[in-house]
Computed example of a mutant assay.
Amino acid sequence: MEIIGWIVAIMMFIVAFVGLVYPIIPSVLFIVAGFLLYGWIVSFEEMNWLFWIIQILFVILLFGADTLANVVGVKRFGGSKAGMWGSTIGLLIGPFVIPVAGILLGPFIGAVLAELLITRSDLKQSLKSGIGSLVGFFTSVAAKGAIMLLMIAIFVFFVVV
């Protein structure tokens, strides 16, 4: 049963990493699902209260890193709240409208359009906001990926050691 538990957990972790670049997949839920399914199939014995407190803190950190990276990226490049919201909406809609490339073009186009249409910024400033959204997206992917790897490493430590 332990091998099946590891296979299921690893499959959940892989799906979580796919969610880094395809934001419709809730990465953090798949990481936690990997822990829970492993525990259900094998045993929760190794995953004590300290393990769950650490993981809950990392889940909170994941949500914070995602939001903060997007806000900082757009703001750092002179974007407004409208640009931030446009970027977020573009990130969610882009992959459906423009398969594959929409993950990058969606936030960029969303930020640029929001800046042009809502705040009436000039084209140069709107494009800077769009670039900021891309910087924020890549920063978010890197930060979330590192946090997820750390969560998995802690899981392996508690279960194996």
Rank of each mutant, 00 (worst) to 15 (best):
L61P: 03
E46P: 06
I118M: 15
V42T: 01
V8W: 00
I10C: 12
L117C: 00
A65G: 11
M151A: 09
G78M: 00
R120F: 02
S126G: 05
L57C: 13
G79C: 10
F35K: 02
V159T: 06
F13W: 03
W49E: 15
F35R: 01
G19N: 01
S133G: 00
A143R: 10
F158V: 11
F157M: 15
I53D: 12
G86Y: 00
I10K: 09
L134T: 07
V8Q: 04
F17H: 10
F30K: 07
S133K: 00
V135S: 10
V156A: 08
L116N: 03
G39F: 00
L29W: 14
L105F: 14
P26N: 07
I109G: 10
L134G: 04
V100Y: 13
I103R: 02
N70E: 14
P107R: 01
I7C: 12
A65N: 11
D122A: 07
A114Y: 00
V72T: 15
F138P: 06
L105P: 14
F96L: 03
I98Q: 06
E115M: 05
L123V: 12
R120A: 07
P26L: 05
M12Y: 04
P95I: 05
A101H: 13
V59F: 04
V21C: 05
F138W: 11
L127G: 08
L37N: 05
A82R: 15
L149Y: 09
V59K: 12
T139P: 11
I14L: 08
F30N: 02
F155Y: 05
K128C: 10
V161D: 14
W40C: 03
I98K: 05
E2A: 09
L20W: 04
I103E: 04
P107D: 00
F17D: 10
V74W: 05
M12I: 00
W6I: 00
I93N: 03
M11L: 11
A16C: 01
V18P: 05
F17I: 11
D66M: 07
A69M: 07
I103P: 04
E2F: 08
F51C: 09
L123A: 11
W49M: 14
I93K: 00
F96K: 01
R120V: 01
I98R: 06
V28K: 03
V72N: 14
L116M: 01
P26V: 00
P107A: 05
L123K: 09
A101D: 14
K128F: 12
G34C: 04
A65M: 08
A111V: 07
R76V: 10
S140F: 02
V100R: 15
I3H: 13
G34M: 05
G78R: 06
I152H: 08
A111D: 07
F13P: 07
I4A: 09
A146G: 04
L116H: 06
G145V: 02
A82W: 15
E45F: 11
F63K: 02
L134W: 12
G5E: 00
Y22D: 06
I10E: 13
I3M: 10
I56N: 09
L117Y: 02
L134K: 14
S126A: 15
V71R: 12
M151C: 09
M11E: 06
D66C: 08
I31A: 02
W85P: 04
L105R: 09
W40Q: 04
V59N: 06
I103H: 05
I14E: 08
G73I: 12
F108S: 03
V135Y: 09
K81A: 15
W85D: 14
L36M: 08
G132P: 04
